[in-house]
Each structure stands twice: as C-alpha cells, then as structure tokens.
Design a protein around this nucleic acid. Structure first.
Lengths: 149, 149
DNA sequence: ACAGTGAATTAGAATGATTCTTAATGGACG
DNA sequence: CGTCCATTAAGAATCATTCTAATTCACTGT
C-alpha cells in the first residue's frame, strides 16, 4: 500500500504540496513548512526540534500546530513515530521498512536498512491479531563509557 | 482480603532479600515489597501500577521511593525497562534475552522468547560503539480494528 | 538504652512533553 | 461582503518522572 520509497528527492514547495495532497492532507502554509523540515534532511527529529527549525526564518508556526500536524502526518502514514527514548517521541520521514540504531549516550538515531537484515522464527500471533509492524532497535553506547560502578 | 496469590510464587521474602543483596542492593522493607510485586507474576508493569500494587495491603511506600527503587533496580540489572509506549515506561523482571509483542490497542505486552528467533544481517557498528542490547518489538492490533480512514 | 552516622524514604514542588480548550483567523464560494 | 468550516494558536491542563530538602530508619559503638 506504500508509495515508492522516498529518498534523495528534492522537496520544493509544489512537490511537498502534492505529497500532502496524495495523503489526503490539505497543504497549508504551516504544514508545508513542517513537511519541509522533516523531508529536507531525512533525520529523526523531536517535536521541539521541528518547532524550532520551522520557525528559524519567520516565527509563524505554533507549538500546538506542530503537535497537531505531526499527529496528522502520523495518522495518514506520512511519517512514522520512533519510540526509543522515554523522554520524547522522534518522527521519521522514512516510512519504508527499516530499523534503528540508537546511541543511548548521545541520543543519536541512525537508520538500519531492512534489506540484509533477516528476522526469522517469530512465533505465531494469537488469533485475531494482525501485525502492525516490527521494530528492531539496536541500542549502543560509546565503548569505555559504563553506567556501572 | 484474600491475599492468597493465584500463581506459584517462587520468591518469598528471604529469597528476594538474597536476590537484592546479590545485586548489591540493601534489602529494605520498601524495596522488598516492590521486588515482590515485580517478581510475583512476571508481568510488565508501569511505575504507577507498581506503586498501586505495593500499597494494596498496607500503604507504606511512596511514589518517590517507587521511582528511586525502579531506577536503582534498572541500574543494577535487576529489571529491564521496556520502551514501547511514549506515555510511560514498563518494567520487566525478566532480564534474560527475549523480545516483546505489543498490542497497540490494549497496551498489553507479551514476551517473545529469544530462542527460535534469529536475527542476522545487522550492519557493523561504527568504531568505538558497543552494543548494549537489541530490542525487537512486534506491534500488533486486533484484526478488524483500523486506525485508518 | 542512647547518641551518632550515613543511607533510605518522603511530601510536595518542579520539570517537561504532550494534549486540551477555546477563541481567533483564514480561505473558498456564493 | 458575509457565511461556513477547517486551521491555527495561546495558554491552561495533564501526567509521568525527577528534584529538593527535610525526616526517618537501621546500625554502630559505648
């Protein structure tokens, strides 16, 4: 059901507009700005970071709108939530199948491409259950840094 | 008032005491109570649930102590945090290698044994990085329930 | 028993991410 | 222009978690 993987596409205003429309989202000024922040570089950004970057040029997007918009984008499958840090949610513009490397020291998140990673032996699901997705999170830390005494 | 638990309790007071000591934790009254809640049934409980269950018989453990103790248990490797829900952290008394099935509708968490599940093709880590752990989270929902419109 | 000591506990305030409420704004269209 | 509905927004509310600062506890040596 997913559209083609979205990589290395120059996201100008009209392209973003079409992208939103394709997902059933009316392309308002604020939404385009948030989409631009998300898709410009394919990073993993928190709501706060998105708010900040969206308002770098002109402050024109409120915190409430950032949260509303991110939830809307998530519901429409435009972005994916990354749950690795209990403190905050990150948003990932890459909705294709892939996984994540999480540096618990720095908070840095890196993509792990899904091809090449094989996962087998998953148990059968209970009746009436449908898989929504499988997240693999590799937690790493800088060598030599230890949380133990 | 029927305190008689319905399941086999492998952990009586002296056993829990020894367990804490083995992990370098002084076995205080509150810590033993929290450990009992965690290990009695091997569930995945939030801090709030643990607070509630610890005070069911006799209120003697504060919210602050529950959080302090869970962080201590986590640091000493007695329990593991399960990060699947952005709203709250769950604590898992099973520290052995295993993974999780997360029902996004009900919030229910189920263990997936690690044996039988094979994961291969993980990319090399960047230099100076050490793997802390690999979490596999299978997100499921009840069939027929759709979050999309 | 009893004071001394450091660790453990605690009530409540503070923090911070996210959501909610409610009012203002804006654009499309007759 | 004015209506209508969606969108935006300011700030309050919520809620999990952490922090602060004081109190209590468990032990020790006497």
């Amino acid at each position: 059901m997913d559209a083609a993987p979205l990589q290395v596409i120059p996201y100008d205003r009209p392209t973003l507009s079409a992208l939103l429309r394709r997902h059933g989202i009316a392309p308002t000024h604020q939404r385009l700005e948030i989409a631009r922040v998300l898709f410009a570089r394919c990073q993993h950004l928190s709501a706060e970071q998105i708010l900040h970057q969206a308002n770098e040029r002109h402050a024109e997007t409120s915190k409430a709108t950032v949260y509303n918009t991110l939830n809307l984008f998530r519901d429409r499958g435009l972005v994916r939530e990354v749950i690795v840090d209990p403190k905050r949610v990150f948003y990932d513009p890459n909705t294709g199948p892939h996984h994540h490397l999480y540096n618990v020291d720095t908070g840095e998140i890196t993509d792990i491409p899904a091809d090449g990673l094989r996962l087998s032996g998953l148990p059968e699901l209970p009746a009436g259950m449908v898989t929504e997705g499988v997240d693999v999170i590799v937690r790493v830390r800088s060598a030599g840094v230890s949380g133990l005494g």
